[in-house]
Amino acid sequence: MSSVMTAETTEASEKVINQVQDGPIVVRPEKGVDIKMSAEGVSVFYGDKQALDDISIDIHSKQITALIGPSGCGKSTFLRCLNRMNDVVGGCRINGRITMDGEDIYAPRVDVASLRGQVGMVFQKPNPFPKSIFDNVAYGPRIHGYAQHRDEIEEIVVRSLSKASLFEEVKDRLHDPATGLSGGQQQRLCIARAIAVNPEVLLMDEPCSALDPIATARIEDLMWELKEKFTIIIVTHSMQQASRVSQRTGFFHMGVLAEVGTTEQIFQNPVDNRTRDYITGRFG
């Protein structure tokens, strides 16, 4: 179904470190790495206010990319560009190009609803619909017409809940209201809901900030498992979390992407001074 597009161009396959002062430092992928999504020169404006300035980043397939940075730095804004949730906000304007598998997701022929079916999203605060657990997970497959019969849907629901490692906990009360679950369970339900439509990319906007450490650990374990099947981009303000779960990390600062690279490199040997200051806790 999905054609895998490898970045074969010599330019992209070379490992280039652009070290222009104040400009973004982009670590280009090594040869053979799949690039799932890619942003080129993305700027976002809310009315007259510029929220993002000239962001370019590649998102590697089947990896976890963490976006970190102080609050208000634009990392969540950037995340919402990837499934066009910024369209919902009035007065939001986006320049630049964002592609998924080489295809411009802002092209006129793209159906936004279908795009969001393939780029799922999990929010900061768990937001289960005021329906039953079952109906929450079945919501996506139903609207996207993935399954017609009840047993097909049931199968998808069970599979998604299992993948989100929630099934065992809720299998006896699938038709109880989802709002009765604990916060951590709700967030895993939201993940199950998002993966029920079998997306290729999963965006997670600080998914653990409203959860306690134990629930957080469970979600992090889950992400580790999910990365086998999905490309995950996670926005987090917790540097520990970024270093624990991600393979690649991008550091946002005041609307610009200051540095991006492997998580190891960013945390152990940051090139940019701002990154170093942030990671060592000088500000944040």
């Binding site: 499934n83 949730m85 919902v88 609803a113 279908s114 795009l115 969001r116 079916g117 393939q118 799922g120 999203m121 929010f123 605060k125 937001n127 289960p128 619909f129 005021p130 919501y139 996506g140 609207i143 996207h144 939201c190 809901r193 998002a194 439509v197």
Partner: peptide, 20 residues
Amino acid sequence: SLRFGSLAMGATRSETIRKV
């Protein structure tokens, strides 16, 4: 948040309104 949740699932606006 419910609105965003539904839209992010790929629901259209009218589906969001009717179903959520």
